[in-house]
Every structure is written in C-alpha cells, then in structure tokens.
C-alpha cells in the first residue's frame, strides 16, 4: 500500500519533469504550442521508442487522468469572481455556450460516425 503511494508520487514528479522540459522547449524555440502538449508528444515518443517503460508512468498517469475533474475545481470556484457571468449578459453568454457546444458536439459526432460507417461498408 505505502509502496504504491510512493510509486504514484514519484511517477507524478517524473511527469511534472517532462512538463517542465516541454515548457523549456516551448520557450526556447518560441513555439505557440504550450509546454504540456509538447511534453505529451515527448512522453508518447519516448514510450514508442521504449526509452521510457510503461511501468514508469502507468500508475501516476492513471491517477492524474482518472481524477482530472478535481484539477478543474479551483477554476470553477473562481467563476464567482466574474459577476458579469451572473447578470443578464451572463444568461446570454451561457445560452451561446450551451447552443454552440451542442452544435459542435453533434457535428463532430455525426461526421465521425458517418466516416466510420462508410469505412465499414467498404471493408
């Protein structure tokens, strides 16, 4: 049990290290891509090339991706600071966000579904 917790913490520190590496690269070559995405590509490449073994990151990554919503909570609490969101404009804004999100999700899903169905027919 304790061993597992220590393993998870070490793996999260390791993932944090990759993030810092990604941040460094983004700053160094002035990429408009954030360090976290560069870090993701680095880790993926390292896994593919077997430079990093899956066991080195699996537990920590599982915890971080599994509890992702927790990391959004402080920002969600922070919405209270913006009273604009709460007024009349707020209602309109939320309406735009809800409508637009429905349209985006429906289009994405329908395109993905139809491309796959067509692929399945051909096969």
């Amino acid at each position: 049990m304790y061993m597992k917790i220590i393993k998870i913490i070490l793996q999260i520190i390791f993932l944090y290290g990759i993030l810092l590496l990604g941040d460094g690269i983004a700053r160094l070559v002035h990429l408009p891509i954030p360090g976290s995405i560069i870090g993701l590509v680095l880790l993926f490449t390292a896994l593919q090339l077997h430079i990093v073994k899956l066991e080195w990151v699996d537990l920590g990554a599982g915890l971080l991706t599994g509890e992702l919503l927790l990391f959004f909570v402080p920002s969600a609490v922070g919405v209270v600071q913006y009273d604009q969101i709460l007024g009349v404009i707020g209602v309109k804004l939320v309406a735009v966000i809800v409508l637009s999100t429905i349209v985006v999700m429906a289009c994405t899903g329908l395109v993905a579904d139809s491309v796959q169905k067509r692929g399945a027919k051909k096969a």
């Binding site: 999260i12 993932l15 944090y16 990759i18 993030l19 990604g22 360090g35 976290s36 995405i37 870090g39 993701l40 590509v41 880790l43 993926f44 896994l47 899956l54 990151v57 699996d58 920590g60 990554a61 599982g62 971080l64 991706t65 992702l68 990391f71 959004f72």
Partner: peptide, 10 residues
C-alpha cells in the same frame, strides 16, 4: 492539470 495533460500520452 499540466502533468495530467502530459499523462494523456499513456
């Protein structure tokens, strides 16, 4: 959220 984004490589 930063290391969590990196973790999606897994």
């Amino acid at each position: 959220l930063g290391p969590a984004t990196v973790a999606f490589a897994v």
